[in-house]
Nucleic acid binder design. Sequence first.
RNA 1: GGCGCGGUACCCAAGAGGCUUAAGGGGACGGUUUGCAAAACCGCUAUUCGCCGGUUCAAAUCCGGCCCGCGCCUCCA
Length: 457
Amino acid sequence: MKDFQLYNTLSGKKELFKPLAGKEVRMYVCGITPYDDAHIGHARCYIVFDLLRRYLEYLGYDVKYIQNVTDIDDKIIKKSRDTGKTPDDIAGKYFNEFLKSMELLNVRPATLYPRVSENIDEIIVFIKGLIRKGSAYESAGSVYFSTDSFKNYGKLSGRNPEDMLSADAEHAAEKKNKSDFALWKKDKEFSWESPWGRGRPGWHIECSVLSKKFLGEKFDIHGGGLDLIFPHHENEVAQSEALTGKNPVKFWVHNGMVNLKGDKMAKSTGNFFLLNDLLENYDPMIVRMYLLSTGYRQVLNFDISELADTKKAFNKLCEFKKELYQVFGKVPDSDKGKVKLPETVENVLNNDLNTSAAIGEVFKIVNPLTEKFLKGDFNKLDISQGLAAVSAMENILGINLSIDRGPDADRVEKLLEKRRRLREEKKYAAADKIRDKLLKEGIYIKDTLSGARWFRK
RNA sequence: GGCGCGGUACCCAAGAGGCUUAAGGGGACGGUUUGCAAAACCGCUAUUCGCCGGUUCAAAUCCGGCCCGCGCCUCCA
C-alpha cells in the first residue's frame, strides 16, 4: 500500500499524511453560520470532509472531528431584528435543518458541534492572554489583534498586507493598522459582559478558542472552504500562534468552490441553488455522487442538467449491486467492519482523495463483472471483487447503492413469476399486460439470461 | 494593483515527465441478446491535451510569453 498523500495549503504541496500522535487524528472543520437555508456549496464542503474522515478511519486512525457552530453573527442578528425571533431560535432552526440535510446526504455527524455562544468565557480568557502578550489592544470598547506584532502574518495565504486593497473603512479610526482585525466587538444589544464592556466576539476568534479547547494547541487537520483561507484562517493562525507560540495546525485542507453560471455560489450575491430544492428532486445519494465526481480542490460548476447523467451512472451501480447479491445468493449484512478496498481504488484515494478516479476504478471493476454475472460465468474471486467495489462506493465514498427491496417486493416477484409462465406458454399479450401494469407504477422490467429483474427509475 | 487556481473529446471529468499513440461517466453511432421492448454488456467516438516558442532521448505533464475563465484581498463552505 502506498501512503496517503494529502494537499496542504500551508506548504502548497501534497504531503505524506502522518498524525501528530499515534493513531489519533484531531480534525477541525469550520462549520456553518445558521441564519438561512444551506446551498450546494455547503453540501460539497461537508461531504468532502466526511469523505476525508471516512478514509482516515479506513486507514486505521481514530478521528476526533470538531465542527463549530457560529451562532453569534451579524447576519443572525439582522435576521433577528427583521423577524422578531431571538438569535437562538434562528440559529437553532437552521442548524437543525442543516443536520437533517447532512443526514440525508449520508454525512456522518461530527464528534462534537460546539457553539460560540456557549464558550464566551473561554473566548474572553483567550483575548486577555493575547493582550497580555502584546498581540492585541483595546480601542473604544473593542479589542483588535495587532498584525504588526505577529511576524508570520500572511504565511498561510501567502500575502503581504501592504499589497492588498484596503478594507473595513468603518473601523479604520479605531485600528492602529489597517490589517488589524476585531477579536471583540463593542455591542450593547446582543452582548456579554467583558473586561472591555459589553460586546460580542469577533468572527475569527471562535475557531482559535474552540480548536484549542477541544483538540489542543496543536492538532492534525483544519478544514474549510477555499474562501476562508484569507482572512479567516490567516487570522486564526495569527491568534493561536501568538498566544501559544506554536504552529497550531499541521495540515490545512481546503475544498474548492461551487460555481453557478460561472460565478461563485453565495447567499450574499443571490447566486445560489438551495440544497433542499435539489434534494427534493434527486436521490441524495445521486447528489453526493455528483459532488464527488469532481476532485475536491477543483471548482465545480454546478449544472442541474448534469445530475441526470450522474443518475444514470448511479443506477448502473445499483443494478450491479442487485446482480451481485442475486448471484451471491443472499444479501450480506452491510459491511461495518474493516473491508479491504480494491487496490486500484485505494491507490487513487491515496493520491489526495482522487474521487473522480476512484469512481472510474469502480466502473472498471463493475463493467466486466456485470457481464459475467449476467451470463452466469463467474467465480468466487469475482464476487469478492464485486463486494469490494460496492464497499468502496458505500463505506468510503458514502454513496449507498439502493437495491429497492420495498414492502411490495413479494407482490412484484409473484407478478414476474406469472409473467415468466405466460411467456413460456407464448402468451405474449397477457405477459405484456403485466409489464405495462408495473410500468404504470414506475417499475421497469429487464429480462436477463438468468431471469427477469425489476427496478424503479 | 497583490496573491492563487484552472483551460483535456459533443457534455462532465481523471491524468501532472516514459506504465497513457490520454481513465471513468453521459450522449451519438454500430453490434450481442430479445417474441417485442427495456436493460445490460461489447465495439466505436481526442495521433491529441487554450495558443506560440523552449528544455529533454521522451512533455497534456517542466520553463518562458500570450489569450481566456474563476477565486481571495468585504460577509462567505
